[in-house]
């Protein structure tokens, strides 16, 4: 109850600090343009004929949507946590009567308005350069979009917070984040749409969490999925949210007990 009452205040703090670091935010956003830089390559590939059903226009829709999704669901909590564990700032947080996970969650969510504002121009460009045939037409699919985006954020968030918790045991867990990110880059459809993967590799991403953080929301928005397929993927996505959520909470409880015992 008490946690719920403090949430609005936490959101406000998160929003104001995001605003204070707006310049950094903008540069960070621009660094995630890698998929857009990949786009010319895909255009060159699809110049004469579509590749695995991807025409040039479809590639454009895919990567612009991907850019926007990434802006909305991006996370960096593990860096914050690593820093706070090393600098001792975590001890300060633990003095407060709110579980630190809430704090990290509100900080991440509170920056979404600002990130949406930055992502907005990209969305406008995307709409101008592609025609609507590359977007979903069924209202039921669009109804699923917010849930899917929130799920995508939640998977990334829990993974980051869980990896951040590892820094309570290890010297630092930044390297683990890098390994997680490598998995993300390859298997989420970030650089290569999963539909373009060779056949023998196509089914394996479905068994990993990465696709539900990126490729799935894009496919949903670009109308690549039927309602039935989308429902199944949404179910799988939220299974991952549940699993990672449980792992995260368990890791933090054990980690904090250890932190309390050794003082970090």
């Amino acid at each position: 109850m008490r946690t719920l009452r403090t949430l609005p205040a936490l959101f406000k703090v998160g929003f104001v600090s995001a605003l204070a670091y707006r310049a950094e935010f903008l540069v960070w956003m621009l660094t995630s343009t890698l998929p857009l830089i990949m786009l010319p390559l895909w255009h060159a590939v699809a110049e004469q004929a579509p590749l695995a059903g991807f025409s040039q226009g479809r590639f454009t829709a895919y990567f612009f949507t991907g850019f926007i999704v990434r802006q909305l669901v991006g996370n960096w909590a593990s860096w914050t946590i690593n820093y706070e564990v090393r600098s001792g700032a975590l001890s300060q947080r633990l003095l407060r009567p709110i579980h630190p996970i809430w704090f990290y969650a509100t900080e991440s969510l509170a920056s979404i308005p600002l990130r949406s504002a930055f992502a907005f121009p990209a969305a406008v460009i995307a709409l101008l350069v592609t025609d609507t045939s590359n977007l979903a037409h069924d209202a039921r699919l669009w109804a699923m979009v917010p849930v899917a985006i929130f799920g995508a954020w939640a998977i990334g968030f829990f993974a980051h917070v869980a990896i951040g918790a590892l820094s309570l045991w290890m010297h630092q867990s930044i390297k683990v984040v890098e390994i997680w990110s490598a998995g993300f880059f390859v298997f989420s459809g970030y650089l290569v749409p999963i539909a373009v993967f060779p056949r023998w590799l196509q089914s394996s991403p479905h068994w990993m969490p990465f696709e539900y953080m990126h490729g799935f929301p894009i496919d949903l928005i670009t109308g690549a999925l039927s309602v039935e397929q989308a429902t199944r993927s949404l179910g799988a996505q939220w299974c991952w949210v549940g699993i990672l959520g449980l792992v995260t909470v368990a890791l933090w409880d054990r980690g904090l007990r250890r932190y309390g015992a050794f003082g970090g």
Partner: peptide, 25 residues
């Protein structure tokens, strides 16, 4: 000094060097 994350920006742009330049129009 706060521009130091410019370097990440350049690193991101540098990635485009992977492809033959004729890809870009």
């Amino acid at each position: 000094v706060r521009i130091d994350n410019l370097r990440y920006l350049f690193e991101a742009v540098f990635e485009a060097g992977r492809w033959p330049s004729t890809v870009f129009k």
